[in-house]
Design a protein around this nucleic acid. Structure first.
Length: 337
DNA sequence: AAGTAAGTCAACCGCGGCACC
DNA sequence: GGGTGCCGCGGTTGACTTACT
């Protein structure tokens, strides 16, 4: 037996809201509040709308102090950094941007920021499988990569790409100098590990708020701040669930500030392409693209995957083995989701 | 000017989690 | 402890607009 519908679908209006409906809803809520019952609310007002629809309309459009469009560079950077760290937790990201709604940020990311950062993308599953089929080599490796392409969520794929793009701006190990990018908040075991092993009160509050149902207004400023606590820098994203251990990855606090600033600058570069490092990176990618075309021909667009790691056979193998640190957290992250 | 493709964004849908009985 | 109903979230859809041919 399925879940009962939240309202009588045959007797509710759908589609865009009229100014009259907006006015009714706004006036009622401003005078009486929501009454903590969205389902009953439309009946009280005399609106032929689903309660969920009313809630959405209020939260995303009618609520006071809502900002639409006109995202600032600072907001762009915040969204990107949080997306890389925690993935598509739009409500949490929205909580860090006063006046912005999760829906607005989600739309903005999907339609603009993602394209700015990753370029025009091709369909990940279809084309990546196609690419893998073209790569000669061990069948087991191929199958593993194909399975990965089907298992990885779109969000994880995008975040992996962003990690790799940021890597490409400096050196092959630059990511590991940026612990603030490690997706510990999004680790499948992260919440539990996080609660039990970190002493960082702020982040613990985030987890507790998320789990106890209280209004989720997490302070995730430590994701953006340069003042990262010692305990907060444990690379939880790289823990082995079986062993419980951590991979050694030393990061001195002295270079942390500069690393954080570096990430900010890198993201800024990716978003706004204002300095030479990006131009150099693009040249590098174009060079790799030419190599790829020589090997595999022009049969498909190649601008979805960054060149490092996927555009040549050696890298395909090394991504699975030599880049164990990388794959470690990605496999964990997605295999256990 | 007309047709088409691409982009944008408001709104919908279904699910998980939680509170209450 | 199980059932029910509501809330909130993330993913998706589709109408509308804009850009391009």
């Amino acid at each position: 037996m399925g879940r009962a519908p939240c309202c009588d679908k045959t007797n509710v209006k759908k589609g865009p809201w009229s100014p009259e409906e907006d006015a009714k809803l706004k006036a009622y809520i401003e005078e009486h509040g929501t009454g903590n019952n969205w389902i009953a609310l439309p009946h009280k007002i005399g609106l032929k709308r689903c309660g969920k629809s009313c809630r959405l309309r209020w939260l995303n459009y009618l609520r006071p102090n809502i900002k639409h469009g006109g995202f600032t560079e600072e907001e762009d950077l915040t969204i990107c950094r949080l997306y890389i760290s925690i993935g598509s937790r739009w409500s949490i990201i929205a909580a860090q941007l006063p006046g912005r709604t999760d829906n607005d940020i989600k739309n903005y990311w999907n339609t603009r920021l993602k394209k700015k950062l990753l370029g025009k993308q091709r369909e990940p599953n279809r084309s990546r499988s196609l690419h893998l089929n073209q790569v000669p080599g061990d069948a087991a490796d191929r199958l593993k990569h194909e399975a990965a392409s089907q298992t990885l969520s779109a969000s994880a794929l995008e975040r992996m790409q962003l990690h790799m793009q940021l890597q490409g701006l400096h050196n092959p190990f630059s990511f590991y100098d940026h612990p603030e990018l490690w997706p510990k908040y999004y680790h499948p075991l992260g919440d539990k590990i996080f609660q039990s092993q970190t002493a960082d009160a702020t982040a613990t509050t985030l987890v507790q708020q998320a789990s106890d149902g209280s209004p989720l207004k997490p302070d995730v400023s430590n994701l953006m701040s340069t003042n990262i606590q010692e305990t907060d820098r444990l690379p939880l994203g790289f823990r082995s669930p079986s062993s419980g251990g951590t991979l050694s990855m030393e990061t001195s606090s002295s270079n942390l500030d500069s690393a954080t600033a570096g990430v900010r600058a890198d993201l800024h570069d990716l978003l706004y392409c204002k300095n030479s490092s990006v131009a150099g990176h693009e040249e590098h990618q174009l060079a790799d693209l030419d190599c790829y075309r020589e090997i595999y021909g022009e049969t498909e667009s190649t601008n979805w995957w960054p060149t490092e790691g996927f555009m040549d056979q050696t890298a395909m193998v090394s991504w699975d083995s030599a880049s164990a640190l990388h794959s470690e957290f990605m496999w964990q992250e997605n295999g256990l989701r």
